[in-house]
Design a protein around this nucleic acid. Structure first.
Lengths: 343, 343
DNA sequence: TTGACAAATTATAATATTATAATCTTAATA
DNA sequence: TATTAAGATTATAATATTATAATTTGTCAA
């Protein structure tokens, strides 16, 4: 009761179109239009409104717009940003969103099925106009929620295999890995190992391994499970994998790492052991990270344009939202085998 | 008119507390409470409500909650995620947000003052309950907007110098750089160069340079501007900086890089030139990235816990939002000089 | 001077949730 | 049996915006 203002005093109106309208002497709707449909307002009125807005430091409430169905928010769930190429992808998404006036709601983490589900649920609570997800969504409940939300969904993922919820943007991880394995074979390597970060639940990695297997089969090389290792996505992981594989197989002459981070770590281990790369062992990576070209020796790797993938994903969503009915369901970005000196 | 449903037919009610309430035969308010104040609802009612929610696949609309003042969204503006330690910070923020049921609205990019201002304006449109910004906000307009928004603000930045808008979390970049420079001097290096990514507009980098200068002065070394270079934050940048400095000064014996990414690039250049590190030249970095310890030779660097910084920033915000009035205005996280073999 | 038409503006209602105040139940006490 | 209190539930109003329909204003021609 102490705080209650005296009867006559008008309470300090919160800053909204209503208040701006009052100050200019016009209806709230006119203020709204001055901002979003300038053509429907006379130039003079518009000028007065914009000035009042500027003057008051008014920032339109996007929550309310969103509730009325003018939302401009995209939700996204991504794996950990460190050491993977995800950071570049997020940058691509963010840039594209920003340029189109959209905002990006981000959840990041290492997800079990339940965690993934709860993250998606959280995001959907904000009623985003579109969702971008990494990898295929595992949880059936989550898939159902996404579908019934009505928002278009882009999965940035392996482009072949399981049926997408809606749209997919990505590369054929199978083909990239197949191509690299063939490339190594063509360069004369006979015993090629494969190192990956944990594959469980990750389509992309699984497809890479499958591509590696397919190439070996085609080459008439019997593929030994003990030519493969899974390690955490760190430089140390790469170094350890190198040690494991080379001590298992004295004659191994090349290792294909499913991530540049691992390959770089392995190269360091070779330096420590005074092993020539590729003389003693050839090393190939995946991703073409910034360091790859500068590494000593320069890293042979698979180049995938992650930044562009991020941008494309957003562009697909926006196209769909813009009413474009013939947005492709599957968008495959190309890849490139970058042949450098490490293999 | 074709679409209009026949008169008697009830239009398909959108899924909201209202609809759930109708199905359970209870008031909307009760549904709301079943979710957010379970204690105020009888166990039986609550069970029925939760079942109906589950059954219908209802996801509460956070926009509407937010409008009523129950928002749980934090806005953040960060520099590019690639090659800097920012990804770890974002991971920290995301984890902490997620654990507390908050969502993170992220804008990422390389910002001029105007772009920074527009990004902040965009975020504020969503009425976040708190904001986390990198570095001190430059634009006066943006600072005003932030202040008048009433949301608590954490700047993750240099902890000394300019007056923060609200709270700061960070380290003293001055001290870290001072300490590293002194460390190098103590190890016997006489001519120490400094390489940084573009300093303009970045407090943290400026403070690092200042710390480097202060140390030189204290050591009685006259500091030459041509012992410093600015390069882009890439491995190549680091390599180029090494070339530039060593050709300018034949007697330079150590280089302190303001980022591990640069230092790693420089080490590769040394390998190409068959220069011993630290025999021919010592290399020190900043950040202690994953690769630093695995690098050949292992990288001497400044370790700052960026992940923890991100978590702390969010925790400070939440504490303040939780009504804690004695949240510290300035939080300094410690640092560590990690002495390895490269210097 | 009236009518027709377009342009500009205003009024209304709808979006989904929840704090608050009001009401209804039930049980315990006098 | 009436009274009181606590617990559970419901009714009301408020949050800010905008599509739509309705109204006002102005211009031109008949």
């Amino acid at each position: 009761m102490v705080d209650k203002p005296p009867a006559g005093e008008k309470k300090p109106q919160r800053l909204g179109v209503r208040e701006i309208a009052k100050r200019v002497g016009v209806a709230p709707m006119t203020v709204s239009r001055a901002l979003s449909n300038p053509d429907m307002v006379s130039p003079e009125t518009r000028a007065k409104v914009l000035e009042a807005i500027e003057q008051a430091g008014f920032v339109p409430n996007r929550l309310a717009s969103s509730m009325r169905g003018n939302g401009r928010m995209i939700g996204t769930v991504v794996p950990p940003l460190i050491n993977s190429g995800i950071a570049e992808q997020v940058q691509g998404m963010s840039d594209e969103c920003h340029e189109s006036g959209y905002s990006m709601l981000l959840v990041q983490g290492e997800f079990t099925q339940e965690a993934e589900e709860s993250s998606i649920r959280n995001l959907l609570g904000w009623r985003p106009v579109g969702m971008i997800l990494q990898s295929f969504v595992q949880s059936e409940t989550a898939r159902a929620l996404l579908k019934s939300s009505g928002a278009p969904v882009v999965e940035i993922s392996e482009i072949k295999g399981r049926k997408p919820i809606d749209m997919v943007v990505g590369v054929s991880n199978f083909e990239t890995a197949y191509a690299m394995t063939m490339h190594l074979a063509a360069k004369g390597y006979k015993r090629i190992g494969f190192v990956s970060t944990p594959i469980h639940g990750n389509d992309r990695l699984r497809q890479r391994r499958t591509g590696y297997h397919a190439a070996l089969t085609e080459l008439g090389i019997k593929n030994h499970a003990d030519m493969e290792v899974e390690v955490p996505i760190t430089a140390q992981g790469g170094a350890e994998a190198l040690v494991t594989l080379t001590s298992r197989h004295k004659d191994i002459d090349a290792i294909f790492f499913s991530s540049d981070t691992l390959a770089v770590g392995a190269v360091q281990e070779c330096h420590r052991r005074r092993w020539a790369v590729p003389g003693r062992i050839a090393i190939a990576g995946y991703g073409d990270m910034d360091l790859a070209a500068q590494l000593y020796p320069p890293l042979t790797t698979v180049k995938v344009n992650r930044y562009e993938m991020g941008r494309r994903a957003v562009r697909q969503l926006l196209a769909r939202l813009g009413g474009d009915t013939k947005v492709p369901t599957i968008t495959s970005l190309g890849f490139e085998i970058v042949d450098r000196e490490s293999a």
